[in-house]
Design a binder for these strands. Sequence first.
DNA 1: ACTTGAAAGTTATTCATGATAACCTTTGAC
DNA 2: GTCAAAGGTTATCATGAATAACTTTCAAGT
Lengths: 181, 181
Amino acid sequence: MERGALEAKVVERKQRARRVGATGPQGGARALAAEEADLFDLGGLETTTGYVMRRAQMAIFGDFLARFAELDLKPAQFATLQLIAANPGQNQSAIGAALGILRPNFVALLDELERRGLARREKSDADRRSHAVTLTDAGQSLLQRARAAQAAQEQRIREILGEEARESLIALSTRLWRGLS
Amino acid sequence: MERGALEAKVVERKQRARRVGATGPQGGARALAAEEADLFDLGGLETTTGYVMRRAQMAIFGDFLARFAELDLKPAQFATLQLIAANPGQNQSAIGAALGILRPNFVALLDELERRGLARREKSDADRRSHAVTLTDAGQSLLQRARAAQAAQEQRIREILGEEARESLIALSTRLWRGLS
DNA sequence: ACTTGAAAGTTATTCATGATAACCTTTGAC
DNA sequence: GTCAAAGGTTATCATGAATAACTTTCAAGT
């Protein structure tokens, strides 16, 4: 799939979903209720932590895709660049594991970053099995731009929730993540 | 993949990730730091809303899989049952759209629920294009058990975060979801 | 009544992701 | 020196999300 089309697709998708939700099934009283509520009775799902977090996470993901379309970076790629930048010279396994990416799947991810001249594998002479991973200059500068895009997303979230609530959401998510792991 | 194996796999997966994280790359000073911090510098990812929410959501997902293994229900299936129960007689499109599931993909999902005798499609005579979807008695009773399992997960979250924080997390996630849609 | 555009459901298909198994090389411990 | 284990890789599979295209039915307009 081409990259530029991604943003358009996400937006389109959202519009369709909303359209369907607003239109409702076959008219009548229920459709009105749905229109007011924006969608109908979730039957308990609205107080299910996993469900609401998933929906929120999906929404963030969609927003991310749009913002990072011109940088041609997916969430996992951005996270990888961040982690390499913060831990230059680490080997693939360590970085992949820290991101929760299985080693076999991390290979292609890194291949692509390397192909685009953003990251580099160097044979470690301390342990010639492992590859020390670093960012190239191009990788560094793309990461700078990516960080700006990310800051913009964070700002958007700040506008929706307020700064205090945003920090709270991060803290709670982190606690839950650690607590469940 | 067989169902009973799922829980085991998730757990196993987690152990491996932790093992790698704790073991660290090639010993030495870095490994110690990693052991103390449980993992190394995330380079800003720890204050990135999308990243921490994704990790938290993944953790919840894994916990869900384990809890629902004996019921043989995946998150999307559970959500679908909940939604049908709360809105009996709705057509597929409406239910799918409310869950953010594309209509083509909802077909197989419903097929499976129907095959297992949990849900039913009935031709609507008001609009013979659409299928009114309802739960069977078996679907109702499975949903009861599923709700108990879900309540247990919510309880677990309550133990990790506290009830106030849990409700806060739900409220913030919902606000963000709505705000970004 | 007749035509036509759109909605509901379906099928087939593609693509990205996550996960497993198996393999090679290198290391470190015995 | 041998051997178990780690790091990296390949191949492969299952799953989920997405698009296109088709059929039937409806509803609106003429």
